[in-house]
Design a protein around this nucleic acid. Structure first.
Lengths: 125, 125
DNA sequence: TTGTATGCAAAGCGTTTGCAGTGAT
DNA sequence: ATCACTGCAAACGCTTTGCATACAA
């Protein structure tokens, strides 16, 4: 079903190489190095397609536009530096979240975002 | 500095009465009962003003538009029903999140969102 | 009276869609 | 030869802004 194209490969590669969640416009810029005439609409269409195909996950940092990362990653969360805006992946999880779920509710999934200053911004003080 | 007006009071009241985070358009609809000619631009301007004044907090559920809730609440998190879309307030927190923070990073704040089915939607199965 | 707040309409901005042309299989 | 994919531009939906009027204080 899902064909190959220079554009789609460029988009997938950009996300793979980045190693962190990317905004659509960041994907666009990076992928353009590999597919010069790449349009932003194609980026959006492919992010959707790759998501449907299970290759890519959408990450939403509260207050920001959705970012995209590779789907084949272990469970993790994110840290956003409120100074420089960079989003980092955290391979850790507090666990035991079922305890927070109200009676009669069913929890299937959770998202946790930490905010603060990254190393660079902490040292810059 | 922050004056009173029928519109601003209606907006504050709508958020107060709701007891859950509201979308701007929900605020608009509810507040219109109290201030009929209320325009959506006024809603946005006042949500911003109330936020600046520290009366209201912005809550972002990943993937949704920002919602607004009263600021004077104890620390809490949110549960979003993936069936009916309703957002509930959870007065609980896993704690010990500093342990997840990488070396050299400083965590100041965190947000946690649980996803699943609410009581109504669980029973409807 | 003075300056902020409001309503309306227009402008912005990121995202989505329509369409004719391109390209993968 | 098909049929999906692409680029471009127009359309969309939500949010913001400009401006003249209305309203608190």
């Amino acid at each position: 079903m899902i064909r190959h194209s220079r554009q789609r490969d460029a988009i997938r590669d950009a996300i793979t190489r980045a190693g962190r969640p990317l905004l659509p416009q960041e994907v666009h810029q990076l992928a353009q190095q590999q597919a010069p005439r790449l349009g932003i609409a194609t980026v959006y269409r492919n992010l959707q397609a790759l998501q449907d195909a299970g290759e890519v996950n959408q990450v939403t940092i509260p207050g920001d536009s959705p970012r995209f990362e590779l789907a084949e990653q272990p469970h993790h969360h994110h840290f956003k530096c409120t100074q420089c805006g960079e989003v980092t992946t955290l391979y850790a999880c507090p666990g035991k979240l079922a305890a927070l779920t109200p009676q009669g509710y069913q929890m299937h999934r959770h998202e946790l975002t930490l905010y603060g200053h990254c190393v660079k911004c902490t040292q810059a003080h």
